[in-house]
Each structure stands twice: as structure tokens, then as C-alpha cells.
Design a protein around this nucleic acid. Structure first.
Lengths: 197, 197
DNA sequence: GACGGCTTGGCAGTAACTGCCAGGTTGGCG
DNA sequence: CGCCAACCTGGCAGTTACTGCCAAGCCGTC
């Protein structure tokens, strides 16, 4: 907060620590499965106390779903940054395109996504986060659809947003099931056009 | 299993017990909130041991989301029972119409739905269950869309299903937020038509 | 070199959940 | 009626995720 010019050497080592912890955690999850891996195990393997592990990542699920938060903001910013004459659908499409490109290395994303899509509790957490993104997008999409703040609640904007997310999730799931070989963007477009006809 | 003619008096008292436990649980949730209510508290209030409470309901979330399972089967059966010339969309619509009517008393449904939609962990669990319903519906919808079992995975049927669920959830959420005064079916149709145009 | 701020680690505690075992209830059979 | 097997119940201990608390250590500053 104080000085953006002060990475303070703590922040730096913190970032390194976070990355290292994340690596060991994902490795253990891959080796033994998510549920069979305990936080105590991860802490020991990473060489830190259990208490600090929980300070870095508020929950076990955050080890996997934590970096989703950044994508949510990115999606919202991208959608809102589209020129006003871009339709709601196209704005959302542009947003998803951005966060698909923003993914670090495809291999890492595939590993994480596979974990999420094959672990019910993680999948639930993942969906829950995306529900919050959807709520954040409603104002931007409503204005793009020419919907004024009416007295009666209007389902149109939330429905379009939710349907777009549904298409993105469908595409992602098939991408995961193909082992990363399918083309996510193409699947997404196919899904959208199937819904809109 | 043995005799369907043997309610065995155990099953009967079990049903009564389940209903009574459910009532006290929902009452406590309404009074103190879901997270602030412990299973120990519910067990004590219901006059059974904590161990038995967990035998009746496998988890705390099942106290609220447990009876969803029946609706999933009902939805699937209704969709599959539609005549073959009914389109995928209309078949899904008929299915949702059925489970909307199948709701017990609207007040009870409203109480439960309000709880689910205002408690993130319950909402996540709820969505997770519905994700499994969606997977069950894919074959029926694919055949209705004239999609043969192809070598390449096809996103169209899952996308249509997921979009329909998204519309249903949107309608339900607005219905909950209106305190049960809005017309769910009308909201659902508005949502669908907004998505499909 | 002492001080204040920040981090870390251990410890105890809570709450959801599970396995195990003893004890009581129910239902069928002689 | 008596007995046995099947079943359910309750309590107990244990696991795991997660939290608050407090002492100990590290870092930059005066």
C-alpha cells in the first residue's frame, strides 16, 4: 500500500514461496489425488508450517482455484472496455477470448483444469467463483442490451451472461476431456451458435 | 428390496423422523443462519444422536439439497418421455415445467431456495448436483438434435442443456429475490428468448 | 544496540465427518 | 413364548480442514 516502489524483499520471497508451494501441491495432487492429499503433507513437503500454509492460501481449494480471481477481474475489465457499439454477445466473447489467451502455459492450465473437472468439490468451488463474476457483469451487459434500471427485475442480461458462461464451461470441459488437443475457441463458438439458433 | 409390501414399521418411523429432523434443521437455519448452526445443535434439538443424524443425512448440505436428487430423475424422465418430434428446447422446457410444478408447497420451496441462494457453499453444492443432471441429459438431447455419436466430441447438446439450466437458475434466483412474488415460468421464458435471439 | 512492525510456527480448539463397537429393537421361526 | 439373526442407535475416538492466540524471530529504523 505505502510505496508501490517497495517490493520490500518480503513480497519477492513471498512470491517465490507461493510459487514453490503451488508446485509441490499440484505435484502431490497429481500423484495421489486431491482428496487423498492433506494440507499437513503439503506443508511438510514444502518445508513450511501448516499455519503458514493456511496464511498463504486461505483454503485447500484456493491452492487450485486461487488464481481464478485475477481472471475474473480481467474478464470484467475487458468486457467493459469494449466500444459501446459492440453487442453484449460480442463483448462477452471478447472477454473470454482475452482470458483464454491470458492463461500461462497451456500445460499448467490443462493440469489444473483436469484436476478441477475431475474433483466434484473443486468443480463446485470453481462454479461458485464464476457465479460471482456473472453478477459483476450484469450492469455492463444490461447497458449494452439497452435495458434501463427498471423497477421490475429483468432476467435478460443475467440469462445471456449465464448462457455464455455455460458455453465457455462446456467448451472447457470438452477441451479437458480431449486432453488439451481440441481447440477451445472453436468449441466455444460452436456452443454459442448452437444455443443461438 | 425384499418385499415392496414390507414398510416394516422401521421405514415408516424413519420417514417421520426424517421429516421432523428436516423441520427442526430448516427452522434453526432460518433462525441463526446456515453456517452458524452446527450439526450437534440440530441433533440435540431433534432429540437424536449426532451419529444418527449423519446416518440419515450424509452431510450438512444434504439437509438442504437432499431432495434435489428426486427432481433430477424426474427431469430426465420427463425429457425422455417427450414425443420424438418435440425439439430439444421444447423437451427441456417441458421437463423444467414439470419439476417446477412438482415442488411441494411453494412456501417451503421458497424457504429452501432462499437459503441456497444466500449461502455460497450451498449454492455451489446445488450447482454441482445440477451439473450431474446435465450430463445425464446429453444422450436424449443429442438424438433430438439429430447428432449421431461422432468420433469428435460435439459441444452442441451440452451447450444447449447448460444454457437452459442457466436460464432456469436465473429465473429461480430472480424469483427468490422477489420473495416468491414473481412468476418463475414467465421469467424462464423471458430468459430463454433473450438467449435465443 | 534497542525498538516497532511484520512474519512465522506451534498449540489448542472447533466443526464436519467416519469407523468401530456395545447395546437395544424388531421381525421371523420353532 | 423364547430365541436368534438382522438391523438400528448411540457413544467414543480419530481424521481433516480451518481459526485464534501467543511467543519467538527477522528486518529496517532511530
Amino acid at each position: 500500500m505505502a510505496h508501490p516502489k517497495a517490493p520490500t524483499l518480503w513480497d519477492r520471497s513471498r512470491e517465490i514461496a507461493v510459487a514453490a508451494i503451488l508446485d509441490t501441491a499440484l505435484r502431490l495432487f497429481a500423484e495421489q489425488g486431491y482428496d487423498a492429499t492433506t494440507m499437513a503433507e503439503i506443508a511438510k513437503e514444502a518445508g513450511i508450517s501448516q499455519r503458514s500454509l493456511f496464511r498463504y492460501f486461505g483454503s485447500k481449494e484456493d491452492l487450485v482455484c486461487g488464481d481464478q480471481d485475477g481472471l475474473g477481474r480481467l474478464l470484467k475489465d475487458t468486457v467493459e472496455a469494449q466500444p459501446p457499439d459492440v453487442s453484449a454477445w460480442d463483448a462477452l466473447r471478447a472477454g473470454f477470448e482475452t482470458i483464454m489467451v491470458a492463461r500461462h502455459t497451456p500445460e499448467r492450465v490443462l493440469r489444473i483444469a483436469t484436476l478441477i473437472f475431475s474433483t466434484p468439490s473443486l468443480r463446485a468451488r470453481y462454479v461458485e467463483k464464476r457465479l460471482r463474476w456473472q453478477a459483476d457483469l450484469v450492469p455492463a451487459i444490461e447497458s449494452r442490451m439497452g435495458i434501463a434500471d427498471a423497477p421490475a427485475p429483468d432476467p435478460r442480461a443475467p440469462a445471456v451472461i449465464a448462457a455464455t458462461f455455460a458455453c465457455a464451461d462446456t467448451a472447457t470441459e470438452l477441451w479437458v476431456r480431449s486432453g488439451g488437443r481440441a481447440d477451445v475457441a472453436a468449441l466455444f463458438d460452436e456452443a454459442i451458435s448452437a444455443v443461438r439458433t
